[in-house]
Each structure stands twice: as structure tokens, then as C-alpha cells.
Simulated assay, not measured.
Amino acid sequence: MFPQTRLRRLRRQSLRPLFTETQVTRNDLIMPLFFVEGAADKVPITSMPGQYRWPLSAAADVAKDLAKDGIKAVILFGIPKTKDAVASSAFAADGVIQEATRAIKAAVPDMVVITDLCACEYTDHGHCGIIHESCDGPDLDNDASLALMQKIAVSQAAAGADMVAPSCMLDGMVMAIREALDSAGYEYIPIMSYSTKFASALYGPFREAADSGFSFGDRSTYQMNPANGREALRESLLDKEEGADILMVKPASFYLDVLAQVKELGLPTAAYQVSGEYSMIKAAAQNGWIDEKRIVMESLTSIKRAGADLIITYYAQDVARWLA
């Protein structure tokens, strides 16, 4: 009780660093990268200032630059030359993600390459798998899409991916991918599941970055309703039971309550600070309304405090430099 108890004693400037409970380190950070098949030069992503769509020829140099700043892991997204209804470019041996993986692993062998495992960038309709006619009109065919995810997973592992990250939110996706990887001799490849991925309005800038807008409907029949917390936890629990090695909550900042609950399931937990989160901070900073560095570090610290062991963020390289 006051005056014997004075919490301000430990908040003196000289003592404050000694009692910091949560600290973001470079080991926590994963940098997302976008590669465009057939591109000659990097292209700025207008809705995400400071971010680029890279040509495959730049993959090695981009990885070296990130490694120089202490980034140890990247997650790859690809934009192919051609798209079709069955996402055939997604599992091609010479696909954009497969080639980017090979280039990065050759240039920086210690870089952990995580491949986003989905079909939305590769389908001509922009949805995350095979489409069929349902009672409500065209929709994602869950079980046919599982077979597609299996082919993509094996192709990415064969190209040298250290980890696959299925983001399609299909029922049974982790079990199907685990079975395919094990059968192909890749039982050592971990699965970082987008286990609780919300149908969020925060993905807007990503649509430009990955050229993954959908031609009809939306993704609400397979991504999580932002209003549903209990169902969100159940999604992650099911992925744990199916064999996921890491669980992910996406987006991050608006769903810290869900992230804290998913952490209690006992698996390593990741959070994705998505494009909209990045762009809101960046836009406010460019207008002089906020201190960008302080806001970024505060947001990432909050994400880690809520339970994230890994944070996927477009600020990864900036943060690594600030920490250095």
C-alpha cells in the first residue's frame, strides 16, 4: 500500500530498461516479399509506400540485403505470368515461387524461406482454390481444393522451402497437406497454418501487391467472420489437432484477444501485421500525424505481448535496422 509501495520507483529513466517485460527482437520478424514472373524491374506498390513487387532476378540481392540487417526469415508471394481456373502455375516446377525459393536458398542458405500456400494469386477468378456451383451460386469447392493444395505443397517443398504456410482456410487443409508432404518424403517440413484468418477489410493494399482481387463474391464463406471469437479459437484448435506446427492469427492488431487465446493452445504462434495495418501507419506518418518508429515499435510490442512468437510485418527490415 502507498506510501510503502511506489511503482514509480522502477520507472526512473536509468532503471526502466531493466524492467521491460516484452521486447521485440530481430529473431521475431518475418519479412513478406512479392515476386513477379517475367518482370524486368522492381515496381513500387502504391498503396504500400516503401514496398515493392520484385523481379525474380532480384531475389538473391533482396535476400542478401535482408540478411545483412539481421532478418532470418521471409515469406514469399508470387504473381505468375498466366492464370487459369485450376492455378496450374502455383504447382509448376518452374513457377515463380519455386524459382524465387531456389534463388534465395542459393544466395543465403541460412535464410528461412516460408512459402505462402494458396491459389488466389494463380487463379483467373481470384479465389483460393477450385470453384463449383453451390446452392448459393459459385463458391469454393473445399475437397477438390484440398487436392490442389497438396500439389502446391509438394512442389514448394521440392523447390527448397523450409516451411509451408497454407492460407486458404479450407476445412481439413492441414491434415491433407501433412499427408501429402509425408508421402513425398518431406515429413521434416513444418506447416505454419493461417489457422485463424479473418475476412478482414484490412487486406485491401495486398490485393494490389499480389494481384489477387476476386472476380465475383468475396471470401466470407471460407475466411473467418470478424465478429466470431469462439469460432476463431475452434479453427485454430482443429488445425492443431490436424498436425499444424505453428498457428497464425491474421490480421494482428485488431485481433489481439484472439491471439492471446490461440497462444494458450500450446503451439508456437505467429501473427500477421497485414497490408492495411502497415498502410494506415505509413499514411499517418507521412502526414506528420504520428511518430512512425514509436508507433511501429508500440504495435509490434503489443502483438508480441499478446502471445506472438513470430511476427510477419512489412516493417521487418525497418525494425531490424532500428534495433541495430
Rank of each mutant, 00 (worst) to 15 (best):
A201E: 12
A144S: 15
A159S: 14
E208P: 08
T196E: 14
K68M: 07
P3N: 11
D182L: 06
V249C: 00
A107C: 02
M31S: 14
D218V: 08
T123S: 05
S57D: 13
Q156I: 04
L146Y: 10
L181R: 01
A271F: 08
P251Y: 05
D171A: 10
A85W: 03
Y272R: 04
L259R: 07
S299P: 09
N27E: 14
G266T: 00
D291G: 13
V86D: 12
R321Q: 12
D116S: 06
I311H: 06
A308K: 06
C120A: 06
F216G: 12
T269E: 09
Y222G: 05
S155Q: 01
K263A: 10
V154R: 06
E292K: 12
A158H: 12
P190G: 02
T123H: 04
R11H: 12
E298V: 00
S134C: 08
L146M: 06
V24I: 05
A306F: 11
G70M: 03
V74T: 02
N27K: 12
A184I: 10
V113D: 04
E21D: 14
D141K: 00
D309A: 05
M173D: 14
E264Y: 03
E121D: 14
A60M: 15
A67R: 08
N142G: 03
D94K: 11
R12K: 14
D136P: 06
G38A: 04
A107W: 02
I281M: 04
A158E: 15
L146I: 15
E133N: 08
A40G: 13
A199F: 08
K282P: 01
K72E: 13
A147P: 09
L7F: 13
G50I: 06
A271P: 10
M1C: 10
S14H: 11
